[in-house]
Computed example of a mutant assay.
Amino acid sequence: MITQSAPAAIIVEGLTKRFGNFTAVEDVSFQVRRGEIFGFLGPNGSGKSTTIRMLCGLLSPTSGRASVLGYDIVRDAEAIRLNIGYMSQKFSLYEDLTVEENLEFYAGIYQLSPRRIKQRKQDILAMAGLLGREKSITGTLSTGWKQRLALGCALIHEPGLVFLDEPTGGVDPVSRRN
């Protein structure tokens, strides 16, 4: 249960992003408390992914300010990336690597110890229902299995906050429900 005194995990004030003359995000403000589930709803092109990319420290805002887990999205972008999980709407998996190699790659990015990698890899494989598929080449997996693996890669380092951008896009109804 979230209490009113739960600290804010995300604070956004007047966030705007322009690409030349095109305004993708305009004057967005909101707060998300720790432990809260928050979602953006809107049509394609309404700025949802652009806002998420700014909050992940991947895109700089044109104006406004925001913090994620207490880190400023402009000054502390690297710290944000180390403390969050991000699953983009386009898979960030390496198609020519196996399921296991993708998990190991992402665990290495987050500098997990070899012992921790082994444990987290098993946890993720079990959570995602990928046990027995460790040696499968990622490019041969169905969209639903790739989605599970991408989620596992976003969670491998046990982040304090997870951004999911269209996590069920292109996934069959049964996988979506799971």
Rank of each mutant, 00 (worst) to 15 (best):
S63A: 15
S63L: 14
S63V: 12
G64H: 00
G64S: 05
R65G: 10
R65Y: 09
R65Q: 14
R65F: 07
R65D: 13
R65E: 07
A66W: 09
S67P: 01
S67H: 06
S67I: 01
V68T: 03
L69V: 02
G70E: 01
G70R: 01
Y71P: 10
Y71M: 13
D72T: 04
I73N: 01
I73A: 02
V74A: 02
R75W: 10
R75D: 14
R75N: 13
R75G: 10
R75V: 11
D76E: 12
D76N: 13
D76S: 11
A77P: 01
A77H: 07
A77Y: 04
A77W: 04
A79C: 06
A79T: 03
A79N: 10
I80E: 00
I80Q: 02
R81T: 06
N83S: 10
N83P: 05
N83I: 09
I84R: 05
I84L: 10
I84A: 11
Y86L: 15
Y86A: 12
Y86K: 08
M87I: 11
M87G: 06
S88V: 13
S88G: 15
Q89V: 15
K90F: 13
K90C: 12
F91V: 03
F91L: 08
L93T: 04
E95G: 14
E95W: 13
E95D: 15
D96L: 09
D96H: 15
L97E: 01
L97I: 07
L97R: 02
L97N: 02
T98Q: 04
T98P: 03
T98D: 08
V99Q: 00
V99K: 00
E100H: 11
E100I: 06
E100P: 05
E100Y: 12
E101Q: 05
E101N: 03
L103S: 13
L103F: 08
F105Y: 15
F105N: 01
Y106N: 00
Y106K: 00
A107I: 02
G108V: 11
G108E: 09
I109F: 07
Y110P: 07
L112F: 12
S113N: 12
P114A: 00
P114D: 05
P114S: 02
R115T: 12
R115E: 11
R115I: 08
R116G: 06
R116C: 07
I117H: 06
I117G: 04
K118F: 05
K118P: 05
K118L: 09
Q119K: 13
Q119L: 12
R120C: 05
R120S: 04
K121S: 02
Q122R: 12
Q122D: 09
